[in-house]
Design a protein around this nucleic acid. Sequence first.
DNA 1: TTAATAGTGTCTGTGAGACAATATCAG
DNA 2: CTGATATTGTCTCACAGACACTATTAA
Lengths: 222, 222
Amino acid sequence: MNRYEDPLALVDVTLFTIQDGRLSLLLATRKNAQEPYCGALALPGGTIHTDEDEDAQDAARRVVRTKLGIDPPYLEQLYTFSGRTRDPRRWSLSVAYYSLVPEQVLEETPIEGLEFVPADAIPGLPFDHNAIAAMAIARLRSKSTYSSLLTFLLPPEFTIPELHAVYEQVTGSTTNIAAFRKKVLDEGMIEPTGQRRKGGQHRAPDLYRRRGTGLQELKRTI
Amino acid sequence: MNRYEDPLALVDVTLFTIQDGRLSLLLATRKNAQEPYCGALALPGGTIHTDEDEDAQDAARRVVRTKLGIDPPYLEQLYTFSGRTRDPRRWSLSVAYYSLVPEQVLEETPIEGLEFVPADAIPGLPFDHNAIAAMAIARLRSKSTYSSLLTFLLPPEFTIPELHAVYEQVTGSTTNIAAFRKKVLDEGMIEPTGQRRKGGQHRAPDLYRRRGTGLQELKRTI
DNA sequence: TTAATAGTGTCTGTGAGACAATATCAG
DNA sequence: CTGATATTGTCTCACAGACACTATTAA
């Protein structure tokens, strides 16, 4: 039926977290079995396993689970990269995903062959992985301004100053926190837990949680 | 190397135009050679030809060229739909695109087995094509509000009232044209040609063109 | 001149953003 | 109390949107 050679079908994941206060992403050393570029640092990924993966998102989830031992709290399709020459093996097609994970979740995770690098200091990567990572960062920056996306980089309960710090780190903007507080509160994407964070040196900040389980988005008007 | 059966690699295109003042999209009758669902109306698409297509976008462009005989003025990747059961043949992966074409371009095109249906009256389609079309419509609606996207549904020179009519047709909003005019003009996405459209019954409207060759997008602030 | 459509100017409400003032914590 | 951080309140500016007014066309 199909007269043409099938493309190689892959998934790749750009997994973000906060490390030492900086937006960082996960790179993995490619194993010996993983030709080509084995031994090199790259975005975690691999071929779709049509016998066990229900769909591409499922394949991406498996990749994260295999590397980190956790199910990613947030995982969204980014873009599909394709072409004759992007992979030396053959015509290939990689469905790219990006994921957000709070740093607290990663503390008890195996770091075998894994490395987190700051998003503004990504080394040269094989394939078109630098382009994938760049698009993931752009998407994250953009979506941070009109959704509850950044709450997925924080633990279930967090404070406005914490969210503001992540916002500044990701977007590079330096708006004052009072305006930021008002905006996120009357957008209604987060809600107060009624508790405060005790134990700090100073005034205890109010705790909030994401409203609803999934991502909240704002709509534009005209 | 690859122990798993390769997925079927496809592209599908949701091609929008304006017909009789309504947002419409293209459906094509699947040919006899096109198992499964041959004879049914579906989104135009097909397998990626790894021997002639440079990448998936190229494959989508070929699909449009084959059906309509034209290179689509606007073609953008939408989403990749995948899974074990979405195609009866086998585990499949379809990179979906959407395209915008002015109705004037389609006037001298072969209509062999082609049909345009209003976007709010799409019949039942095979595969997950209804989900693809729904996402394409949602993307078009959303992006219409903050980009020059809708100008690709109009000829190279157009008037503000024409653009406004398309805007209302696509988004369903009914904002008054004065506000719309001011917004699109100081966004700077279109520019006056200096000419007016002669021959109407009433005051001749100013003509505009898209500024730049490609899509213009607005950025949000916070 | 009239009817119909196109384009411009003015007013208002909303919300981002800056800044000041108040509140709360530990020492 | 003091110093540091958190939160709230006030003011301003930008802009979407409504509406009224002016402009242009053909009959």
